[in-house]
Nucleic acid binder design. Structure first.
Length: 384
DNA sequence: AGGATGCTAAACATCA
DNA sequence: GTGATGTTTAGCATCC
């Protein structure tokens, strides 16, 4: 194998292995995903370290870093949430994210994709002139700090520690079209929070009540064939604010510059009634500039306060970056490439790179950066 | 104490 | 008529 930069001698393979900026398996995954998009990965630079020979890395027989902790394990300080040993071995599996609660509430299980496919076809794909509408890669924006963590691990029989607005938001964000009818919102909530399966029916009333009352949620024209009811979306204007509420927190000065914003797309009604919907980009790069530590008091101030409180014990921004990157892996750069040019995924963060994770500081972030760069996604510093 | 927020329940209207 | 959906109001609890 060709020597890599950073090699210091000794066994070339071992030296190269030691100098790898990313876990070997992860690099293989990256290479495979890039290959799947019809390109070839010849050079990968991560945090100044260059990998320009993938022959050795791609050797499937070499599972030398199989014991490398998965990102969740690396960063996870909560042993209770560690995935079991028989978890999906695929690094692109989202199970570790689920276990880490990085994706709790925004689960993108196969069920989700299948369940929401119908909605996607109804809303997005029915544009009259759309030949083959590009698939919508959705990287829902997980709250940097989810809503208030329960005092004890949640079970199927405990009420989720999320407000209904939070649940609705996550459900909508998890939908391919970013629009769901009430029924699908119910289904999503039940699927991901089994508590509601047997909860008194009043919670559905609460969901509807929230949809109607909360200005963050908007009705859009019902899609043909949808039957009764409308599609509900997150108001694009309020979405950014909502994201800020999720992603921002009053933090000590040393950390105050960090922020993470994952933008995506949102479905809005088409120009003509019944013409379906168009996918438009939301959340420009600079949109989050401004109020740094102040969640919009107009929206979810209480939630924002809770998020701020939870941030001290919840997963770091790096882990959410890792979550985003794994999602990118899951659906591949090929999908990302088909996004409208303006529909950028933006990850903004400060230069506070190194966290003191035991055994893997900063790895998630570098992974995220590498993946997102590969996917053609901007990864840029947060506005100061 | 008071305001803001969220949850729950209920009543009512609309629509398929 | 029935059930799902959507709106509105009210009361209560919690938090700051």
């Amino acid at each position: 194998m060709a020597p890599m930069r950073g090699e210091r001698g000794g066994s070339p393979a071992r030296a190269a292995r030691a100098s790898l900026p990313l876990p070997r398996r992860l690099i293989r995954q990256i290479a495979r995903h890039v290959a799947s998009s019809g390109r070839s990965l010849r050079r990968l630079e991560v945090s100044g370290k260059v990998i320009d020979n993938f022959d050795d890395i791609d050797d499937p027989s070499d599972e030398s870093d199989m014991e490398t902790p998965q990102p969740a394990r690396v960063a996870c300080g909560n042993a209770g949430n560690l995935p079991p040993a028989d978890h999906d071995d695929d690094l692109t599996s989202l199970s570790w994210l689920q276990d880490r609660n990085l994706l709790r509430g925004i689960n993108l299980s196969k069920n989700d994709l299948e369940d929401t496919k119908t909605i996607t076809s109804q809303v997005v794909l029915k544009q009259p002139e759309a030949k083959t509408p590009p698939p919508v890669i959705r990287i829902p924006s997980p709250p940097r700090t989810p809503c208030k963590a329960p005092p004890s691990p949640p079970t199927a029989h405990t009420k989720p520690p999320y407000s209904f607005s939070c649940l609705i938001f996550m459900a909508i964000e998890a939908a391919p079209a970013r629009a769901l009818p009430v029924k699908e919102i119910y289904a999503w909530i039940i699927r991901h929070f089994p508590y509601f399966k047997h909860a008194p029916q009043g919670w559905k009333n609460s969901v509807r009540h929230n949809l109607s009352l909360n200005k963050c949620f908007h009705k859009v024209a019902a899609a043909p064939g949808l039957g009764k009811g409308s599609l509900w979306t997150v108001d694009p204007q309020h979405r950014s604010t909502l994201l800020q509420a999720f992603g921002r927190q009053p933090v000590p000065p040393a950390e105050a510059e960090c922020e993470q914003t994952v933008a995506g797309t949102v479905v809005v009604p088409g120009p003509e009634a019944g013409a379906g919907a168009v996918v438009v980009p939301v959340q420009e790069a600079g949109q989050t500039a401004g109020a740094k530590n102040a969640p919009d008091p107009q929206l979810f101030p209480h939630l924002a306060r809770r998020l701020a409180a939870d941030a001290r014990s919840e997963p770091s921004a790096d882990e959410y970056l890792a979550a985003a990157s794994v999602l990118a892996m899951k659906y591949g750069p090929a999908v990302l490439d088909q996004l409208p040019p303006a529909a950028h995924l933006v990850i903004s963060r400060c230069a506070r790179d190194e966290h003191s994770y035991s055994g893997g500081g900063g790895e998630e972030r570098r992974t995220a950066e590498a993946l997102l760069n590969l996917a053609g996604v901007r990864s840029e510093p947060a506005p100061s």
